[in-house]
């Protein structure tokens, strides 16, 4: 809006005539739909006019998207394998050595009545010593000690089995048990799973990061292609401005062009990921068979494909928007 507009009695009438100006030819909903439909078709037709440039842009987008897509499939499968990989969980409670047997037994009974506990195995100092002698081979050293140094251990078997899903709950349970006054130290026997969980968390972050970077690459690719397209249609942009087209109207075919690039790029990326999953599925299945695991590989399903195309389409439109808005504003009539 011009800063020069005079303030005063005439302003009201000017505002009115400006509104009259704008309302002179309003677009109805039907007109909008028809216009958008025809722009959608025309922008596709225009892509086919330059097949080589179009194919190259689409392929670059597809390659940029298939890397995070393939990583996503990989992560999904690893998560799924570990989800099925359930094992009985055990929380070992090492009691203070000052504790009497009777007190320890009472605690054992008390814990086994908890709702989240399946059962509690009581391992006395003597049993512990026997286990230790059998497994470690340090019999001589132990027998040289004046007294049994081992504490009473309660092996708590929770109702929940260990898996990635139950891990946080089990960790809370372990902390609760360790807080008991009789317990010196509590250990959840799920170290490998804890490590895996942190590797997976790392993997997820990594994929998000890579995806974000590659989405930016898609913005740039589409933006650059659209900039060239705007430049090559400079005459048309000028004539449209001259006959009174709004910037939104001039922008529209280019935004649809970005949409098409996004949709086609996402589609190609999906095809690529599906083919890639199929290609690696054979050796992967052989590997699974060797471990005699009952597990089916997860591919890139229809849902994933639709999400991939959707994200790519949005990226295409945003890339086009960033590029075209600036260029059309900069192109002034002379």
């Amino acid at each position: 809006m011009s800063k020069l507009s005079p303030r005063g009695a005439t302003r009201q009438s000017m505002v009115q005539s400006k509104n009259k100006l704008k309302d002179s030819q309003p677009f109805s909903l039907a007109q909008h739909l028809r216009h958008h439909q025809s722009v959608l078709m025309e922008s596709f037709a225009r892509l086919t006019l330059y097949p080589l440039a179009t194919v190259m842009t689409v392929l670059v987008i597809a390659i940029a998207l298939s890397l995070p897509g393939a990583l996503f499939v990989l992560l999904k499968n690893v998560e799924s394998i570990t989800d099925r990989w359930e094992q009985q969980s055990v929380i070992g409670l090492y009691l203070f050595s000052s504790l009497e047997d009777t007190e320890a037994l009472a605690l054992s009974h008390q814990l086994s009545s908890r709702a989240d506990v399946e059962r509690v195995d009581y391992i006395s100092k003597e049993e512990g010593l026997r286990y230790f002698e059998q497994s470690s081979g340090y019999e001589d050293i132990l027998s040289a000690l004046p007294e049994n140094p081992l504490p009473i251990v309660l092996q708590v078997i929770p109702k929940a089995v260990v898996s990635l899903e139950t891990l946080p709950g089990l960790e809370t349970l372990r902390a609760d048990l360790e807080a008991l006054p009789q317990v010196e130290y509590a250990q959840l026997d799920a170290q490998w799973l804890q490590r895996l969980a942190s590797i997976l968390a790392f993997g997820q972050r990594f994929i998000y990061g890579v995806s974000a970077l590659l989405l930016v690459a898609v913005f740039l690719i589409v933006g650059n292609t659209i900039r060239t397209a705007v430049e090559s249609r400079r005459d048309e942009v000028m004539v449209l401005k001259l006959v009174g087209a709004t910037n939104a109207y001039i922008r529209r075919p280019f935004l649809y062009m970005g949409l098409w690039f996004g949709v086609l790029g996402g589609l190609c990326a999906s095809v690529g990921i599906v083919l890639f999953s199929w290609w690696i599925s054979q050796p992967a299945e052989r590997l699974i068979a060797l471990y005699q695991a009952d597990f089916e590989l997860l591919g890139f399903n229809l849902n994933n494909i639709l999400v991939c195309i959707f994200i790519s389409a949005i990226a295409g439109v945003i890339g086009a928007w960033i590029s075209v808005g600036k260029h059309i504003r900069d192109m002034e009539l002379q």
């Binding site: 809006m1 011009s2 005079p6 400006k18 100006l21 704008k22 401005k241 009174g244 087209a245 910037n247």
Partner: peptide, 9 residues
Amino acid sequence: TLGAGSIPY
């Protein structure tokens, strides 16, 4: 008094 948005009209 006409802003950029009114120019096309």
